[in-house]
Design a binder for these strands. Structure first.
Lengths: 365, 365
DNA sequence: TCGGATTTGTTTAGTGGTTGAATTATTTGG
DNA sequence: CCAAATAATTCAACCACTAAACAAATCCGA
């Protein structure tokens, strides 16, 4: 681990340990006590107490009455993520619908909206409605994230979204103009990336996996050790244009034999065997390159999972070099079509959980 | 950045900042002064002075006389990596040769050995010889790293190295038995991975790239932001078995149409056009998936680079979705056949540079 | 019923590491 | 030769952690 280029001061220590405590609570099956957190993290109970006090003061954690204990000793006060803490606003614009949802710190979906008129103006209205609903619950939003079916640059500029007819659209600038969102930090990301994040929280708990989303196009989100891999320019995961048959069907991208021409969502219904084989070939390439052992099929693939599974696995067995040393697990996504919006809202929450000190500092003003 | 699961104490702060200072010196074109380091890192001059004192005491840095300055003011004392600090021992075992080299903290190759009898016994002898040579220079070794053409598990076990006829060989255990190496930390890694690290230091300075090594097999090392990406089980980069022609030539791995069957080093000479096309198809898949903008051809490909280039670039232009938004750079490796050994020795040095506090603590005993 | 065992959580003194300001050191230029 | 400028060190203050003692709340056994 090469150290980041930034110096570390004492306050960074506190920031790190605040995040450590918060995430320990988030990842615990039971509601842990301060002592349990100390045991799990290696911090002393004194330090954990101090950190927890800060987190409670910032309404990121709440205390719950003591659970009935077995054995002797003072009963522990249980700690849990606060449902009244910061919430995340997820937005999605797609070919034939708009979606918005609000997720609180505990990961619960508090509000969810959908409409069928995909336009930026409609998106602004939907976002305003979601924020209104959140405010009525007393929820403060920590930010908003927008899922887009296209290539998104690191600064949030949508370089190209063919199915929306977008090219170099600055969606962030537009959303910032919406009065209800003016004060929120807004990010934009690829829908497959965000859907992968949604699956990371809601799914099987694997820290490393490939999420494949089959819609009009085919995209993938690469999650490595609970982190999204974005690539040098933020354009990773374009599995739809991996070559499957070098001299095969011409693709709208100009090349021949792209996966998208054999395993697009519409083609799965026509010829599942062909689609499965093509997917298997492309996925085997991914596994050979990245050594992933879990592949999640989402989006349009999830409903067809049973028809695709056998064909894909056959290709994986044949073409993955390390198949005999360690099998690749293939499973359907846990979330349905709302994976991307939920992942977007979740990304906001993750931001708070990864750096609670920043949120606390913001509140203190 | 999700915080690592470990708590942070003050000593971690010092460890981090020691690494920060050391790397700032390592990455500076000029020999920086304490004040320059303070400016570059954001630490105060007082802190930098204290850190530098520690690093000098541990002979990781050395002071040099003041450089002739322009303008007024007390002249700065230049700091540089110490050539008398810890050194790294790189080892390589391959089909038809053994190699060893010693690299000091500045990255200079101090000794280099090669023999033609590839066996573990010979490797032990060569390693002992290299260590002897290092000792005569007054160099203390910080560790040894072995490059192997095969799949290496995270614990260093060589699961399979077909061209060596190895299966589940515990090379670390063997090397630990060599008296001259008994006290050294030893690691084992894939040769393409280590060659990529070698190229990272010696090459064009790109922080993110794909290194492709064409020998008997074809391997690749993925470097993301100056870090090697190893995958879930340490088996990433098996580009040789990416499918290029799904129903093509049978491969020794059991599949059909693997890249290795079209672009193995021996095939490049027979039919560079075919090899270039196959490489281009596979590399386009990598770029679509990982969004890399630099590809380095090394190993057996480097000498044939001019014959391959045009064919590969044509396929990349055609098949990389984002080719129009941002071009992919293709270049030949800077290092020759010794890339892997040098990368191995370099990996040891990198370990010290990434965590000088550990080395200092070791010396203090 | 009461006292010891046990576990949780808080308090307090101590330590390590950084900051910021003041100080010392060394040069150039007028 | 002195003022300005830059480099490096010293020192008091501060912050966050640890360790150990202490306080609180419960169980259990005599």
């Amino acid at each position: 681990m090469s150290p980041s280029r930034a110096p570390v001061r004492q306050s960074s220590v506190r920031a790190h340990n605040l995040a450590l405590v918060l995430q320990t609570v988030a990842n615990s099956a039971e509601r842990p006590s301060r002592a349990a957190i100390a045991g799990a993290t290696g911090l002393t109970r004194a330090t954990v107490s101090a950190l927890v006090d800060d987190l409670i003061a910032g309404s990121l954690l709440t205390e719950h009455g003591p659970a009935p204990r077995s054995g002797a000793g003072r009963p522990a006060t249980a700690l849990a993520l606060s449902p009244d803490g910061p919430a995340g606003l997820g937005l999605e614009i797609n070919v034939d619908y708009l979606a918005a949802c609000v997720i609180d710190l505990t990961g619960a979906v508090r509000h969810s909206f959908t409409t069928g008129s995909p336009s930026l103006a409609g998106l602004g209205q939907l976002a305003a409605r979601a924020r209104q609903a959140a405010a009525e619950d007393g929820l403060r939003l920590a930010g908003a994230a927008l899922a887009v079916p296209g290539l998104v640059a690191p600064d949030g500029l949508v370089r190209v979204a063919p199915n929306l007819g977008w090219q170099d659209v600055d969606a962030i600038a537009y959303l910032r103009e919406v009065p209800a969102l003016a004060d929120l930090p807004i990010t934009v990301d690829n829908e497959a990336n965000l859907a992968a994040l949604g699956e990371l929280r809601a799914g099987g708990g694997e820290p490393t996996f490939l999420y494949v989303s089959g819609e009009v196009g085919i995209g993938a989100g690469i999650v490595l050790d609970r982190e999204l891999y974005r690539g040098g320019r933020g354009w990773s995961g374009e599995i739809g244009h991996v070559t499957v048959y070098p001299d095969g069907r011409p693709c709208r991208c100009g090349a021949n034999g792209c996966l998208e021409q054999y395993a697009g969502a519409s083609m799965v219904a026509d010829d599942p065997a062909l689609a499965a084989k093509a997917l298997g070939i492309a996925l085997a390439a991914v596994v050979n390159l990245l050594d992933l052992d879990v592949i999640v099929l989402g989006g349009g693939y999830a409903p067809s999972f049973d028809r695709l599974r056998e064909g894909i696995e056959a290709e994986l067995r044949r073409r993955v070099l390390t198949a005999e040393l360690a099998p690749v697990t293939l499973r359907a996504a846990t979330l349905g079509p709302d994976a991307a919006v939920r992942g977007a809202a979740d990304a906001v929450i993750r931001g708070v959980q990864d750096d609670p000190a920043a949120w606390l500092a913001l509140q203190a003003v």
